[in-house]
Nucleic acid binder design. Structure first.
Length: 424
RNA sequence: GCGUCGGUGGUAGAGUGGUCAAUUACACUUGGCUGUAAACCAAGCGGCUUCGGCCUACGGAGGUUCGAAUCCUCCCCGGCGCA
């Protein structure tokens, strides 16, 4: 028996939607489920004691950030969950997204580095590099790229072996490989973690996507092998493989088949689905679902707008993580059943109704729009906190209601009526 | 009363003859945020506009000058000092 597996309770008769139970060593996750992001072992502004009241069943933290600061403390503190005083399931992401967001995904610049552009040193010299050590001086120039340096002074360089990058915190040089990412994630000790991948933007061209996809496949194999070699971790942690392919359906299908056949405990829908890349980047990624083993749990990485979550559910995605509730919340954007609102806007100054009529989150049960508006205007820290709490509840509740609808075999109806109201 | 320094857009505060409808910050108005270098970022912020400009503005009124927020005179208001 694997440490993580899905049992499907009910399949919708008119769509691919399904309701299930994702079993983990620290408890079950009822799916579909929304998974808030706790990048650095905290959901910004919200302590773990509040999680349950927000409808949360789990959360996802980040390998890249925790590796740069706090890894030893987390490990010695008994792992991510215990460290945070959380009893339920936990998830970590591999750091693959940062390879993208700190590298080619930064701004609009696209750069690709071939192995011959890399340092002449054998890659083994670069492996095992630890935070705090000094990188060999002679390889430094090879890591410096004028083009990228001018835009953010930092760099992530990809080669087939792994990724070299500079810390966004202090500029120090580091190296991630699939093996290293897995090792760190073993030390973080989450119930579910992800294989190291190369994320791309949907707008990247075919050859680039194909290259990244094939590299991701090779890294997936290595991530899985590294996991199997740690017998203890393999018994207590589940590993998800990630598929890529950008907007190209043939690549997406190939990626799903390849990753789906490797023996992972779950599948991560890889990519970046921001609207700035167009309106259909998620749809092409969803073509992957038709190629996967039917009982394999599927996670949508970075899928967090209500429309996208419902679209994902309709295609049998089980879990979703995203920064949307927390980042939008901190910046004053609130989800309501009638669409998003900007609470700092003037029109809410004397609006003494709840953020969302009928919402049962801790924020709405106790406070008015006027109050939240006031907290944002005065830049009080409570504003972003209450807003984040509401937004998290909104999305976990959306998934909860979708689950109930699926169990009642009325998902399509639920989805349509939600969207009609949400879009006004 | 005398002397002195100063009065600039919602606020603070630059500018001190033309490149000024006026730097900058805050405030204000509105956008954006999809595996978090984001409690962040961006745009706008006198009126009108056929978008080329036009009009009204730097305490008030005059004046010098081709040209004044900037120089001069008087008035009003404020700070400080001396009576």
């Amino acid at each position: 028996m694997r440490p993580v597996f899905l049992t499907v309770e009910k399949k919708d008769s008119r769509s691919g939607a399904r309701a299930g139970v994702l079993h983990t060593p620290h408890g079950n996750i009822l799916t579909p489920a929304f998974v808030p992001v706790a990048t650095k072992a905290d959901i910004k502004g919200i302590e773990s004691a509040k999680f349950e009241s927000l409808g949360m069943q789990t959360f996802i933290s980040n390998t890249y950030h925790l590796y740069l600061s706090g890894l030893d403390a987390v490990e010695q503190g008994g792992g991510l969950a215990k460290f945070m005083n959380w009893k339920g399931p936990t998830i970590t992401d591999s750091g693959g997204f940062q390879v993208f967001s700190l590298g080619t995904g930064f701004g609009k610049k696209i750069s690709k580095f071939t192995p011959e552009e890399l340092p002449s040193e054998k890659s083994s010299d670069l492996l095992g590099y630890r935070h705090g050590q000094t990188f060999p001086q002679k390889v430094l120039p090879a890591f410096y790229d004028e083009d990228l340096a001018s835009s953010h002074g930092k760099l992530a360089i990809i080669d087939d072996e792994g990724v070299s990058f500079t810390s966004h915190l202090d500029g120090s040089l580091h190296r991630f490989t699939p093996e290293r990412s897995v090792e760190i994630q073993h030390r973080l000790g989450a119930d579910i973690f992800f294989a190291f991948d190369q994320c791309t933007a949907p707008t990247d061209p075919y050859e680039f996507q194909k290259d990244a996809m094939e590299r991701t496949h090779a890294w997936a194999k290595r991530s899985l092998r590294a996991h199997r070699q740690n017998l203890d971790a393999d018994r207590t942690q589940g590993i998800y493989g990630i598929g890529q392919g950008g907007q190209f359906d043939d690549l997406r299908r190939e990626s799903a088949r390849t990753i789906g056949d490797m023996g992972f405990d779950g599948f991560g829908l890889g990519g970046s689905f921001s609207k700035k890349y167009g309106d259909h980047s998620l749809e092409s990624a969803l073509t992957m679902l038709t190629e996967l083993p039917s009982d394999l749990p599927v996670h949508g990485l970075g899928v967090g707008e209500p429309e996208d979550i419902l679209l994902g559910i309709a295609h049998s995605v089980d879990t979703f993580d995203c920064v949307t509730p927390t980042r939008n919340g901190r910046n004053g954007g609130l989800y309501t059943s009638r669409g998003k609102i900007q609470i700092p806007n003037a029109q809410y100054q004397y609006d003494y109704t709840p953020l969302d009529e009928g919402c049962e989150c801790p924020t709405c049960l106790n406070h008015t729009r006027s109050y939240i508006h006031h907290l944002f205007r005065t830049r009080e820290i409570l504003g972003p906190i209450l807003a984040s709490m509401h937004n998290i509840f909104f999305l976990t509740n959306l998934c909860k209601k979708a689950r109930e609808a699926i169990l009642n075999d009325e998902f399509e109806q639920f989805k349509d009526s939600f969207l009609e109201k949400y879009r006004n």
